[in-house]
Simulated assay, not measured.
Amino acid sequence: MNPKTKSCAGCLKRITNGNHLSCYLCSDTYDLDCANINFQLFTTMSKDRKDKWTCPKCHNKKKKSDNTNTPIIPKLGQKRNRRDFSSSPDETESNTVDQVTQRKKLQTSVSTDSSPSHIDESLLSTIRLEIQSSIDRSLKTVIESALKKEFEAIKIELNTLKDLKTGIEFLSDEYDRMKTELKTSEEKVKLLTNSNNSLLIKVGELSQRLNLIEQHARETNIEINGIPEGKTENLNNIAKQLCSVISIPSQVVEAASCTRVRKMNDTTSRPRAIIVKLLSVSKFNKKNPNEKLNTTHLGFTGTKTPVYVSEHLSPHYKALHARTRQVAREKSYEFVWIRSGRIFVRKNEHSPAKQIKSYETLDKL
């Protein structure tokens, strides 16, 4: 047998577990059955109580309480009366018998559970267990209720987040769609811009060609400005007289081509220009710088006004020529002239001539 293994002093069985008590008087060891203690009470016993535990054998050996206060024995310090001894022996015997307190015999085996302390401990343990169980149930109910409320709130929040997620996904899809459409639109705008630029270049080229064609159609025309208008005027006679003055044979004048044209500025008081289609243009003013062509040369009386003979320009080149004369005055250019429908400028006699093809060329002067 293992020397460390203990045996119960009551049933002499070996104790294989730690559920036992040792008497602090006789040091005998008892299992819980022989100690008459249930396991629940054993687990609630404090260490101090276990150390002061007494076995049933030692508990029965304890001295009984003092019985000096019984009726047959006088109290301490009280004298007996002599008349107590004067009674007859029979009376004395009967009185003695009547006054003797009869005690019940003690049971041979006294259970530790029957003691008031053990009963109180068992009751307190049961009460503690009931209270603990009630508290546990209450706490469980409260916790479950609180958790249920929290879970409901979390569930609502999750549903809200789900709806929010759906909304965000929808907005994201719409953003991607709009981004794709914007990219497509940007590409279309870029293509249209390139196409528009190409068309503008072509339109500019066509406009320039049209202006050249219009100007070429006017190469044999001259424009006469400054001739007074009259209701009975004869433009052919005026053209023939002009040709005779500037030494051009009158047969070069084409009668069908003599006509007045509308003024570019209707508010001016100057007379409308006369267009005459000639085969050649004279240089009368260069030969007569002191007496340039004027109305007296053509037989008009009254105030002498200059007469200007120039090539018949298209509306585009006529406006460009007017703008060129204005810019030339602003930038101190001395010479502006037209030759074969082309506009030229020169800063002075020593500078080279520059052709004005468009307004952009004019801006670079």
Results as ranks from 00 to 15, higher is better:
Leu41Asn: 15
Leu41Gln: 15
Thr43Phe: 02
Thr43Met: 13
Thr43Pro: 00
Thr44Gly: 03
Ser46Leu: 03
Ser46Val: 00
Lys47Glu: 07
Lys50His: 00
Lys52Gln: 13
Trp53Lys: 03
Thr54Trp: 00
Cys55Pro: 04
Pro56Gln: 13
Cys58Trp: 02
His59Cys: 01
Asn60Ser: 12
Lys61Arg: 10
Lys62Asp: 02
Lys64Gly: 14
Ser65Ile: 08
Asp66Tyr: 10
Thr68Glu: 05
Asn69Val: 04
Ile72Phe: 03
Pro74Gln: 08
Lys75Asn: 10
Gly77Arg: 11
Arg82Ala: 10
Arg83Cys: 02
Asp84Asn: 06
Asp84Phe: 06
Phe85Arg: 06
Phe85Ile: 02
Ser86Thr: 02
Ser86Leu: 09
Ser87Ala: 05
Ser87Cys: 02
Ser88Val: 00
Glu91Ala: 10
Glu93Met: 08
Glu93Pro: 00
Ser94Asn: 12
Ser94Tyr: 04
Asn95His: 09
Thr96Ile: 04
Thr96Tyr: 08
Val97Glu: 11
Val97Pro: 00
Val97His: 10
Val97Tyr: 12
Val100Ser: 10
Arg103Asn: 07
Lys104Met: 08
Gln107Ile: 06
Ser109Leu: 10
Val110Ser: 06
Thr112Val: 13
Ser114Val: 13
His118Cys: 12
Ile119Glu: 11
Ile119Lys: 15
Asp120Cys: 06
Glu121Asp: 11
Ser122Pro: 00
